[in-house]
Every structure is written in C-alpha cells, then in structure tokens.
Amino acid sequence: MCLAIPVLIKSIEDKEAEAEIGGITRRISLWLTPEAKVGDYVLVHTGYAINILDQGQAEETLALLREIAEAEEAG
C-alpha cells in the first residue's frame, strides 16, 4: 500500500510532470515535491512524487555495502 517506485522526470508543467519508468511515460503530481527538476529521480506513490531520490546517498550506501562484501570475502 505504501509502495513507491523511482521514476525519472522528463518534463514539468505547473504542478505536474511527465515521468518515465522502464520506457513507459506517465503523468505525476508534484504537489508534494515542488522543488523537483527535470532529470531528477523521484519516488512516486499513487501518482504523487513524495521525495527526490538522493543520488549521493545512494552511492554512499552502495560503497558501504561493497566494503562489507569485500571484507567478508577477505575473511
């Protein structure tokens, strides 16, 4: 029910945007994320962007997980 998926914003018109996920375009509302820009990935829940995904944080998380995996492999 609280499902939200990452989509890429392609264009913005007033408080709505065209967003793309896996080649499919759909219209989403930016009422909850008025600061969203074209090129941002946002989390979309029931047609509303609820957050702009933070690329820096995503990369940091993945780097941390790689460190854990490498340390485990090294034993």
Partner: peptide, 15 residues
C-alpha cells in the same frame, strides 16, 4: 538514506 531524510518531507507534512 536515498529515500528518507531525518526531517521527512516538510511540504507533505505541511499539507
């Protein structure tokens, strides 16, 4: 961390 900030979404909370 990519999807959650400690303070949440202030605009959504405001509405």
């Amino acid at each position: 961390r990519r999807g959650v900030r400690p303070e949440g979404n202030r605009q959504a909370l405001k509405l």
